[in-house]
Design a protein around this nucleic acid. Structure first.
Lengths: 146, 146
DNA sequence: GACTTTTATTTAGCCGGCTAAATATTATAT
DNA sequence: ATATAATATTTAGCCGGCTAAATAAAAGTC
């Protein structure tokens, strides 16, 4: 009795897709010396200008601890800078460096879009719309309290 | 210009779903002292009986390194045992302990199914079928070489 | 039989994610 | 003014994932 039935569950499919998606992202971002997830971080800063750690935490929908470690690494690699705010010494203002701005810009309108198109390749417009709607519904369903 | 347009991409939705899904899994498995991902590992062993590391690697579709570390932790916590095969001293045979068998069984037909149902809650049968079809297509699309 | 290749696992190290607890600084209340 | 509460970040430590390199044992080759 090999090949368990769970392989065909939506859960399993989602986990599988997520993994392959991340690997693909890593592979595509390797040229920039970045990892999957970091592009979202940079994109956020590109769109919003300089931001506080707290704003990043909220916009990326991730824990503060994660933001701190990511910012640390991205700063170490020269993509951004962090400095304490004068007004409120608790808050840290983060902003992209030139290198970070260039990378983010380039990644968004090449790598990122390419991956997005590849995902829904060979789907009709109706299917794309439907897929997004169903995914949003899935997200809602999981987020709900039981 | 806040709220970047990327928030509505399929990519972003998938990443988001994956994250929430994992957190929900962690939360549900906490009672068993397990983490999301480990239930799949145990389920595999429950279905296939004792298996080699290599078989686990293939069935879980994960790297050998990941299987080694997971097996290490699951063994440490008493869910499974590992021992070298007599015939071929390279291969390691892994099998569930009583504790592991019980946990896996219980998790599969409660926690796991509950989460699966929650995901597609309030969807019609057609929608479910369609969602699965579209997800499989997405998986294919990402896996392809570009 | 000795040398090389293939196969199975492990080790080390990096990433993003999380939780829980520690810090530091500002705001509030008494 | 002092004590307390709220807010913003960081630190430490655990997880699953990956890559690359190391180890060990079996299979081939000459």
């Amino acid at each position: 009795m090999n090949k368990p039935m769970m392989c065909s569950t939506i859960s399993h499919l989602l986990v599988q897709i997520c993994k392959v998606h991340r690997n693909k992202g890593n592979q595509m971002l390797a040229a920039y010396n970045l990892h999957a997830g970091q592009e979202h971080f940079l994109a956020q800063l590109l769109c919003g200008g300089q931001m506080t750690m707290n704003e990043l935490t909220e916009n990326l929908d991730v824990t503060p601890a994660t933001v701190t470690r990511m910012a640390e690494r991205l700063e170490k690699n020269g993509f951004l800078t962090r400095e304490k705010c004068c007004a409120d010494q608790r808050v840290v203002r983060v902003k992209l460096t030139e290198k970070g701005t260039e990378a983010a810009t380039e990644i968004i309108d090449t790598t990122w879009n390419k991956l997005e198109q590849q995902i829904v390749k060979n789907m009709s417009t109706e299917e794309k719309v439907l897929l997004r709607r169903l995914l949003m519904q899935v997200l809602d369903n999981i987020e709900e309290e039981e």
